[in-house]
Amino acid sequence: MSPLLIVVGGLPATGKTTIAAELARHTGFAFLRVDTIEQAIVRASPLAQPLGPVGYVVAQDVAADLLRTGVSVIAECVNPLAVTRDAWRAAGLGAGARVLEAEIVCSDLAEHRRRAETRDVGIPGLVPPTWQEILDREYEPWTRDRLVVDTARLPAGEAVAVIEAAARPCHR
């Protein structure tokens, strides 16, 4: 059976990391967090923020290596543009994997804002975007099918179960 790449995307503070990490614990899949990769690059080099596509390219290449060895991967990132979404899909399919794309949203703006203003990103040195930066961020609408999970309606555990259920047909 070929490995599975699950790409978990969405705006900051929607619950992506919480869901992706819990999904990794449930499935045993490798977990790649683009924020962690980008912050490591910043710590290790004189590159200044923003890094542009660097973190995504590194994560996609690492994911492809894992997938080629038969290891399924959960990749967590904002994934804001069609070009980034296409690159993830190409990395997975090019490595012989099946691909499931999940967009995490928070339809309750007050709750989304509360999360943005109170969260701990868990990465030393990483300054999370402000609420205004989240609102102003470039985020292209999706143009292909994906699984949409609304964390204003589902707690993290239920969101994980929804993604696991969607992955089952992919995991045959």
Rank of each mutant, 00 (worst) to 15 (best):
M1N: 04
S2L: 09
S2G: 01
S2Y: 04
P3H: 03
P3G: 01
L4V: 03
L4R: 03
L5C: 05
L5Q: 05
V7I: 13
V8S: 10
G9C: 09
G10V: 11
L11C: 04
L11W: 04
L11V: 06
A13N: 07
T14P: 01
T14E: 05
I19M: 12
A20P: 00
A21N: 02
E22H: 07
L23C: 06
H26D: 11
H26R: 14
H26P: 01
A30N: 07
F31A: 10
R33D: 14
V34F: 01
T36C: 11
I37K: 11
I37N: 08
E38H: 11
E38W: 09
Q39R: 13
A40V: 01
A40P: 01
I41S: 09
R43D: 14
R43Y: 12
R43N: 12
P46W: 10
Q49V: 08
P50C: 15
L51M: 12
L51W: 12
L51N: 12
G52T: 15
P53F: 10
G55T: 10
Y56Q: 09
Y56A: 06
Y56F: 14
V58F: 10
V58Y: 05
Q60E: 13
D61G: 15
A64D: 03
R68P: 04
R68K: 14
T69C: 12
T69N: 04
G70C: 07
G70Q: 06
V73K: 02
C77Y: 11
N79I: 02
P80E: 07
P80K: 10
A82M: 08
V83P: 00
T84K: 04
R85P: 00
D86P: 00
D86M: 08
W88P: 01
A90D: 06
G96C: 00
A97R: 02
A97F: 08
A97V: 00
V99K: 09
L100F: 05
E101K: 13
A102V: 09
A102L: 07
V105L: 09
V105W: 11
A110G: 03
A110Q: 14
E111H: 13
R113S: 08
R113T: 05
R114T: 12
E117M: 05
E117W: 03
T118H: 15
T118R: 14
R119M: 08
D120F: 04
I123N: 11
I123E: 14
P124T: 09
L126Q: 10
L126Y: 14
V127R: 15
W131E: 11
E133Y: 06
E133D: 06
I134Q: 06
L135G: 04
D136L: 09
Y139T: 01
Y139H: 12
Y139L: 08
E140A: 08
E140N: 05
W142Y: 07
R144C: 06
R146M: 14
R146F: 12
V148G: 05
V149W: 05
D150G: 08
A152Q: 08
A152C: 03
R153I: 02
L154M: 14
L154Y: 15
P155F: 11
G157M: 12
V160C: 04
V160Q: 04
I163W: 07
E164P: 02
A166K: 15
A167K: 02
R168L: 13
R168N: 05
R168S: 01
C170Y: 15
C170W: 14
C170S: 14
H171L: 15
H171F: 11
H171D: 13
R172C: 05
